[in-house]
């Protein structure tokens, strides 16, 4: 059984140590980011893959004929 609380504490310590080191870096710019020309992607039309549906249903944990079953809040 993995102890999530222990892991969280471990991670917090590691990240705290990392940030201490990163804060020592000189020359860090205040602004960071990049701009894009378009915020939407181009739609690419492609032929339908005949095997896709069969493989998707094989992968589904719960199904009923033509439906993949997912209970609300069950995940």
């Amino acid at each position: 059984m993995i102890d999530k609380t222990k892991i969280k504490k471990q991670i917090e310590k590691v990240m705290h140590d990392f940030i201490k080191e990163l804060n020592k870096a000189e020359g860090v710019k205040q602004d960071f980011g990049s701009e894009r020309d378009k915020s939407t992607r181009d739609v690419i039309k492609k032929d339908q893959d005949k095997d896709f549906r069969k493989l998707m249903f094989e992968n589904a944990p719960k199904k009923n004929q033509d439906f993949i079953l997912m209970e609300k809040k069950h995940w």
Binding site: I2, I7, K8, I11, N59, A60, P61, I68, M70
Partner: peptide
Amino acid sequence: RKYGKKIEESCGEEVLKRII
């Protein structure tokens, strides 16, 4: 939902560490 299991309930320690 669509495939596999919920990762937090089925993965190993290092994977869980990175998710948390």
